[in-house]
């Protein structure tokens, strides 16, 4: 008996669910629950990570991210405005900067600021300053591009309408273009904060005091101290997700809102 297209589709769907269920059952049977519990989700070690993982590590990760973001956003605004400027050398400088810092691994920039510059110029930067500069200068390149795209996505007619009402260039930018660009860039900007949160783990390279540990370094030290496998990293990882997952949801929310507006 031939199946109708709808029956075929249902049949196909149910067989996918059956396959997934089978894989789950096999995993449950095969897994070594004792070892997993001991080495990955060890409750004693998890307990031992608290409260430091929150009061020190998570806090520092947030601080480093915020410091990097402040520099990244300020410099990014400047880069974006330079990139759409009518003055050609500004555009060249901005393009050069963006291509340079987007093209280099963030790790290399951290090493440059953490070791290269102190050695080359004999100046020892405060750790926080290093973090601000390294994280900020890398993220500025990405944020600058996001902002430029946002500014260019505002329809040209908005600028012309503002000018024809007697607003000057700067007034039109401040009153009409930048507020609209800001709405457009909220989702990609939120994604940049997620990337920045993860990149803040590179601070791990710098010689930090215990009170300056962020999540990755904290997890790394946790492994050395306890010798107990993955558990400290699992805790640190969960803390990253506590930051990044809500940000991801927020970005999706902004995206939906923007979509609902532009659809009309």
């Amino acid at each position: 008996m031939a199946l109708s297209p709808r029956q075929k589709q249902n049949y196909w769907r149910y067989s996918q669910y059956a396959l997934l269920a089978l894989i789950a059952i096999v995993l449950v049977i095969v897994a070594d629950w004792g070892t997993l519990r001991d080495k990955v989700f060890n409750p004693d070690i998890i307990a031992h990570q608290f409260p430091g993982v929150i009061t020190v590590a998570l806090k520092n990760t947030l601080i480093y991210t915020a410091l990097g973001f402040v520099v990244g956003l300020s410099l990014g605004v400047l880069l974006a405005l330079m990139k759409i400027s009518s003055i050609a050398p500004y555009r060249w400088i901005s393009t050069l900067y963006i291509e340079l810092f987007r093209g280099l691994p963030a790790l290399l920039v951290f090493i440059a600021f953490g070791y290269g510059i102190p050695l080359a110029f004999g100046l020892r930067l405060n750790n926080y300053v290093t973090v601000m500069l390294a994280l900020g200068m890398v993220s500025a390149a990405y944020i600058g591009e996001v902002l430029r795209a946002g500014l260019e996505a505002v329809p040209k007619g908005q600028y012309e309408a503002a000018r024809s009402l007697g607003m000057g260039h700067s007034r039109a930018m401040m009153t009409v273009i930048i507020p609209q660009a800001f709405r457009i860039v909220l989702p990609p900007l939120t994604n940049e904060i997620i990337l920045l949160t993860k990149d803040s783990s590179l601070v791990y390279l710098l010689g930090m005091s215990v009170a300056q540990y962020e999540l990755t370094k904290f997890g790394r030290e946790g492994i050395s101290a306890s010798g107990a496998g993955l558990t400290p990293l699992v805790v640190a990882g969960a803390c990253y997700l506590i930051i990044t997952v809500p940000l991801g949801l927020l970005a999706r929310h902004f995206e939906k809102r923007a979509g609902a507006r532009s659809r009309k």
Binding site: P155, G157, E160, R163, V176, Q180
Partner: peptide, 17 residues
Amino acid sequence: MRTNVGMVFQQFNLFSH
């Protein structure tokens, strides 16, 4: 000069925000 001259566009160009 432009404050004395009103302009109405084909695409309206109202400030969407």
